[in-house]
Design a protein around this nucleic acid. Structure first.
Length: 569
RNA sequence: UGGGCGAUCGUUCAAUGGUAGGACAGUGCCCUUUGGAGGCACUUAUCCAGGUUCGAAUCCUGGUCGCCCAGCCA
């Protein structure tokens, strides 16, 4: 099946990939009988979701949906020291924003009681023991990648003693770090995860949901597979770095004899010029290198949302990137492509002049004004049109006038005629300069017969430029964003340095007084616009009545910039 | 160097023993009331060496290279 074959197909279903094939195979062989396909998206609430999570979300929800299955949102909240309700809330909002709704909302912490009982069961079966070694000692006893580990001296405690000690751990008799519960597996296993993994540690910490009810907390490995099993998860998809955990995932399920969820690993999403490590993103927030988790330069879903990215585009991007088991790095341009593609089809057009240059049309009657009819979206006739005021004095983009035009420059220059979008042909006649020699005003003449943008004599112009009437213009702050990092791999830094060395000092540029057509006064937060010939923009939440603030989501592709670059090179 | 996983255009994903294809990026042309969008064309890849087979990206053997693992994080 090739979903790209159908041009009118705008669906963003998960394309065929190895995960799809595995599930399809399991459905066919009835591996799980008549049970529905069940998946789960299992974030730890210790940070905001980023574009990498979007891939997991699309896979978890998309694949289940494709097979008529269900997906739970489960918070893997087994470490109270890092987790907060704020993150739980933001994660739920972001999953919904992306366009997915979970079947059940679950928490690993809902299973603390069950997990504890299963631990008792394993102790009674002689499969788990309380270890008094310190963390340091445990590390030494674990051995290394090339040498086997050694048994802990506490490994052969009696079931009774283990039971007693573990119950007292739970009862809060011991301080943090004094003891752990470990699975008794194989200290010589070539897989370090199987060298008697820790199941429970003592943490006298307040949990964001269970409060102080517990002072022992299960480790990820002890909690994850059983949580999947409790929820009858058939396909538990996670990223590649957990492949080494699969044996332990299976071991607990087998020892307990519970529902056999299966883990399948896929590759993590990496993007050029982008950091997708929660730890480092947290650092950017805490050190105030960015304004917050939702800074429009952040790769978080909330950052992309504020920047003006759409869930549709992110889903399409993730679908196109697919899933495999290779680890690579996707060009950021790929994401930009899907975003432009989506916005081009849907964004309302408007005219806005970022860096204004005043144009005076000398032969246009002083005091006269008129409304010109403009299409809201040439890609979508159903979007209708609007009236934009035109007058004798207008602003154009500084870039759209050159006193001495370089080769191939089609825009306005002395003696040259161009079209004002949807209005008239104008010809530049003279300029006014300030004391420093900068052009501050261009005087033009217009052809009254070219109203609407066409001359009855069939005369052609090479260029069409946008404009805003001086008298009617709205002033706005515009925020232009560039990449947060200067290198394709932000972690590529010299010895002793850090990713912070690669921070782009010019990633945010604010323009205080851009001029906008009046209709933009009614913009709402998260409404997306194309400022014609400039880029895609959306109103920022910082906007207040009387103060417009727009974020540039993305610039339009600029082939003139390419010509200039080549000429300069 | 123990174990696990992987290797296909610059990037990413396909091809499930039978014509190596799509998307992004790039290049050129056409079109255009956005130098946007669109259209057409082009360039570029099966890690290496053997083997099995009528036929190998795919199967086998041996290399090479890359990623992951030594938290009481997830």
């Amino acid at each position: 099946m090739n979903t790209n074959q159908n041009p009118e197909s705008t669906d963003v279903r998960t394309p065929s990939n190895f995960l799809h094939d595995i599930i399809a195979g399991d459905v066919q062989t009835k591996k799980y009988g008549d049970a529905v396909i069940q998946t789960r998206f299992p974030p730890e609430p210790n940070g905001y979701l980023h574009i990498g999570h979007a891939k997991a979300i699309c896979l978890d929800f998309g694949l289940a949906d494709e097979f008529g299955g269900k997906t739970n949102l489960r918070f893997d909240d087994t470490n109270p020291e890092k987790e907060e309700q704020e993150y739980v809330d933001s994660i739920m909002a972001d999953v919904r924003w992306l366009g997915f709704e979970w079947d059940r909302l679950c928490y690993a912490s809902d299973y603390f009681g069950q997990l504890y009982e299963w631990a008792i069961q394993l102790i009674k079966a002689g499969k788990a023991y309380v270890d008094d070694l310190t963390a340091d000692q445990i590390r030494h006893y674990r051995g290394t990648l090339t040498e086997p580990g050694k048994d802990s001296p506490f490994r052969n405690r009696t079931v009774e003693e283990n039971l007693d000690l573990f119950q007292r751990m739970k009862a809060g008799e011991f301080p943090d770090g004094s003891r752990v519960l470990r699975a008794k597996i194989d200290m010589a296993s070539p897989n370090l995860n199987m060298r008697d993994p820790v199941m429970y540690r003592i943490l006298h910490a307040t949990h964001h949901r269970t409060g102080d009810e517990w002072c022992i907390y299960p480790m990820y490995d002890y909690a994850h597979g059983q949580s999947d099993s409790i929820e009858n998860v058939t396909h538990s998809m996670c990223t590649l770095e957990f492949a080494d955990h699969q044996p332990i995932y299976r071991w607990y399920i087998e020892q307990l004899g519970i529902f056999p969820s299966q883990q399948i690993e896929f590759d993590r999403l990496n993007l050029t010029y982008t950091l997708l490590s929660k730890r480092k993103l947290l650092q950017l927030v805490q050190e105030k290198r960015v304004s917050g988790w939702d800074d429009p330069r952040m790769p978080t879903l909330s950052g992309f949302r504020r920047r003006g990215f759409t869930p549709e585009a992110i889903r399409a991007f993730v679908g196109s990137v697919g899933a495999s088991r290779t680890n690579g790095i996707v060009d950021f341009e790929m994401l930009e492509h899907f975003q432009r593609d989506d916005l081009n089809r849907r964004a309302r057009r408007a005219m806005a002049v970022l860096r204004p240059l005043k144009v005076i049309i000398d032969n246009y009657p002083e005091g006269q004004e008129e409304m010109v009819e403009v299409a809201n979206n040439p890609e979508d006739p159903a979007a209708g049109g609007r009236q934009v005021p035109f007058a004798r004095e207008i602003y154009i983009e500084q870039d759209d006038f050159r006193e001495v035009p370089p080769p191939k420059y089609y825009r306005l220059s002395p003696g040259k005629e161009v079209r004002l979008r949807n209005a008239y042909f104008i010809t530049a006649q003279s300029v006014v300069k300030d004391d420093d020699g900068n052009v501050i005003e261009v005087h033009c003449t217009y052809d009254p017969a070219s109203r609407g943008g066409n001359s009855p004599d069939g005369r052609k112009v090479k260029s069409t430029i946008h404009w805003v009437s001086v008298k009617h213009a709205l002033t706005a702050e515009i925020r232009l964003y560039d990449k947060l990092f200067t290198k394709p791999d932000p972690n590529d830094h010299p010895e002793g340095g850090s990713f912070l060395d690669n921070l782009n000092s010019n990633s945010l540029e604010k323009i205080a007084d851009a001029r906008l057509e009046p209709s933009l006064g009614g913009a709402r937060v998260e409404e997306r616009y194309q400022f014609e010939r400039v880029g895609y923009f959306c109103l920022d939440p910082d906007a207040k009545p009387g103060k417009l603030v727009f974020n540039r989501t993305l610039a339009l592709k600029d082939s003139w910039a390419k010509i200039e670059r080549k000429a300069g090179a």
